[in-house]
Computed example of a mutant assay.
Amino acid sequence: MRIEPLSARPWLVLAAITLAVVAAGLAGLVDADGWRMGVTAITGLALASLMLAMIGSLLRREWLDLVEDELLPAGATLPVCLVLALPLVGQTEMASALVTRGIEETARREAWFADWFVLLRLAGSFALALGFVAAMIRLRPLRREVAMIGLPLVATAFAVLLIDWDLVRAPRWWTPIVPFIAITGHLAGALAITFIYHLAQREKGDRIEFRSLAATLLSLALLSIWASVVQYLIAWYGNLPDAAGWYLARFEGAPGLLPLSALVAGAAVFLLLWSRRQKVMLIASILMLAAYLMHTVWWFAGADLPDLASFAAVFAVWAAWLWLLGAWYDARIGPAQGA
């Protein structure tokens, strides 16, 4: 489908669709758990895309030249993520359902998870990330310097958001490895979906760029699998009651989904080890994205049909904005000429 990104019509049509979907969410016509799952996924993909663009700029890697005009538009979808999150305001449990381990600690947690403070951190994190998205797009000659300053700040904001919106979900397991694993998974999913979008536009790249991207896809897939295995081993050998409850809830809510996602991710790894051809990389990327989506459903302890429908609606709206912003980026900014 051909898009005219400099025309007002596609923007107005997509804005109207987005507002209609958000109105349905505010009216309670969609499933709240599935909606939260979708918003978490798209926000994670947007922030991870920005982080990947920064990492590529810092390392001066060839793969960034290939997918930069998809990664930065994906980061620019953060306002869409914020709009789609509106139906979730006021639905978080926060302080009232936190684990209590002492009066002083409980008081600190209640203060940290006060609704107004959570929303303030949310707004601050989004504003910070959007500022660096704009700087990465507009300050191309200074992109490496922007990435040097922005990467640790964006990563920290990302981790805080994960704690605010994921770790408070019952049953709770308070461990610093969870944000790391979640960010790793989002990075793998973000690179996979932006590469799929890149090939959907039939853009061309040289052999070195594709080999560099294949190596990065392989590294992120292996890192994501490794981090999940390490988390499970820590919980298993540590015999931690909170961790056992955390895993049991997910295995009961989505039986078999975690091993299935691991098998799909393993198939992607095998393909990337076997060949670096574009078609093989495309299939591997699709498998990585499928594994990411399955792991997201498992992370939220499963989903029924209404959950999946809400998840699909949020994801489809976000993907449409990614497509339109990517077309705008190509028309106004143009492809990169080096990291």
Rank of each mutant, 00 (worst) to 15 (best):
G338C: 10
A76R: 00
A312Y: 04
H295Y: 04
W116S: 10
A32F: 07
A46I: 14
P73D: 09
F158Q: 13
A320Q: 10
I193Q: 12
G25R: 02
D31F: 02
V178N: 00
F315P: 01
V160G: 09
N239I: 14
V21H: 06
I42H: 06
A320M: 12
W165M: 11
V30G: 06
A192T: 06
A309G: 05
G102R: 10
R108L: 06
F117P: 04
F117S: 10
L282F: 12
A249E: 15
W321S: 13
Q91K: 15
G44K: 13
L248C: 01
M1Q: 01
Y237H: 07
P259D: 12
P87G: 14
L64K: 03
S228R: 11
L263V: 15
N239M: 08
A268F: 02
G102S: 06
P179V: 10
L191W: 05
G102F: 05
G131L: 15
M94S: 05
L50V: 10
I3T: 13
M281A: 02
I193G: 07
A190T: 11
A41D: 11
L257Q: 08
L52Y: 09
A227P: 05
M148V: 08
A134E: 08
A20R: 11
G75Q: 03
S219R: 02
G266S: 13
G124N: 05
P176V: 11
I55H: 14
A265V: 06
R101H: 14
W321F: 15
A155F: 12
Q337T: 01
S125V: 09
M294N: 06
W323F: 08
P171C: 09
L26M: 15
K204S: 10
S219V: 02
S212R: 00
L240R: 05
S212F: 12
G256A: 15
L72E: 01
F180Q: 02
H186R: 12
T156K: 07
T77W: 05
P141D: 02
F251T: 05
A336R: 01
G75F: 03
T92V: 09
P335C: 09
